Each structure stands twice: as C-alpha cells, then as structure tokens.
Amino acid sequence: MQARVTWVDGVTFVGEAGSGNSVVMEGGQKNNGIRPMEMMLLGAGGCASYDVVTILQKARQDIVSCHCELTGERPDATPAPFTRIEMEFVVRGRGVKETQVARAVELSADKYCSASIMLKNAGVEIVHRYRIEEV
C-alpha cells in the first residue's frame, strides 16, 4: 500500500492514496479539510462498518442501512493520541436477528477490522455497541 501527502499551503495538505483517490486534510485553523486525527477515527469506523455490513449480507440479513456513530477521546496534551473510541452501529432492516448483528460486530472487533485491532494493540480502549431499528 502506498500513499502521498502533499503540502498545499498554510496547514492544508492533500492526501493521495495508491488507489487514486484523494482527500483534503487541514490542521483546524481554516476548517477546509478533515483533520488527520478525524481521518484516523473515520478510518476505524469505515473499516469496522465494512466488516459489519458484509458479514450481515453474507448471513442473508435484510439490512436497509447501517451507520457507525463514533466518539474518540483524547487527552488535552501534546501529543494527544486516542485513549478511548466508542463505536455504535445502527443497523436498520427487516427482521434482522440480534444474534447476527452481535456476531458481526464481534467478528469485526476481534478478527477482521485491521484499523480497530491496530488501535487496540496500541493501547486504545475500544467499545463496541449496536442498535437495531426495524423498518
């Protein structure tokens, strides 16, 4: 995997992934891009959400939507790494079985989500929850 981060001006940078996709990152002064630590939080949520959705689809659950609400806690110091991340998956569907959602979240947390597992191995406490909404 390869990537490149290029300084634009001030505290604005463009990150280009090897896949050809790019994203604007910014240090927070102008608020014209995602902050790098927000990117890490989004990456963990995106990785875990991918796992949960694909596992539920393979289990033939009739899901209509899924989103992950994330909260990251960081100390008021420098450096300020995450100390705790809470992930709540909101799964909407028809007749979705709670056992299947619990299993999908557990498999993502313990086996498949490289981003979450990397953060957990670095000492970040990660809490997983889920909520099922019938449509």
Rank of each mutant, 00 (worst) to 15 (best):
V23R: 08
L107W: 01
A104K: 06
L56W: 08
E16V: 00
T78S: 15
T71C: 10
C47W: 00
K111S: 02
Q61D: 14
K58S: 11
V91H: 00
S114I: 15
F13R: 10
V23I: 13
Y112P: 07
Y130M: 04
A3C: 03
H67T: 13
A109S: 15
V90C: 04
A104Y: 03
I34W: 05
T71G: 10
F89K: 13
R92I: 09
E26N: 08
M40C: 11
I117P: 00
R131Y: 08
R129A: 10
A44N: 08
G15N: 05
M87V: 08
Q57K: 12
T78A: 12
M1T: 14
K120P: 04
K111R: 14
C68K: 01
Q2H: 10
C68N: 03
V64W: 05
T99I: 02
E134A: 05
S114D: 07
G45A: 15
V8D: 03
E73T: 14
P81S: 08
R131S: 09
G72Q: 13
E16H: 10
R92E: 07
T54V: 12
D110I: 04
A44Q: 13
V64D: 14
A109I: 08
T83F: 01
E125N: 03
G18A: 08
A104D: 01
R92V: 14
R92N: 08
T54E: 09
A48Y: 07
G15E: 12
D51P: 01
I55C: 05
L42M: 14
N21W: 09
I132F: 02
N32K: 05
N21S: 15
R131C: 09
A17W: 11
H67K: 12
E26P: 06
H128P: 03
A48Q: 05
L42C: 12
R103F: 01
D62H: 08
D76E: 13
R94D: 02
N32R: 06
K58L: 12
A59D: 07
V135N: 11
E86R: 15
T54C: 07
A44D: 11
E133H: 06
S19C: 06
E106G: 09
V14F: 06
V11R: 12
D51G: 01
A77P: 04
L41Y: 06
S108C: 08
G46H: 03
V91F: 01
L70V: 05
R103G: 03
Q100K: 02
V53N: 00
T6C: 03
R74P: 01
C68I: 11
R74Q: 02
F89N: 05
R4H: 14
R94M: 07
K97C: 07
C66Q: 06
L42F: 13
R74K: 13
V5W: 07
G43T: 05
Q61G: 08
G123W: 06
S22I: 10
W7E: 09
K58C: 12
R84S: 00
Q2A: 14
S49F: 05
H67W: 09
V5C: 11
F13M: 14
T54W: 12
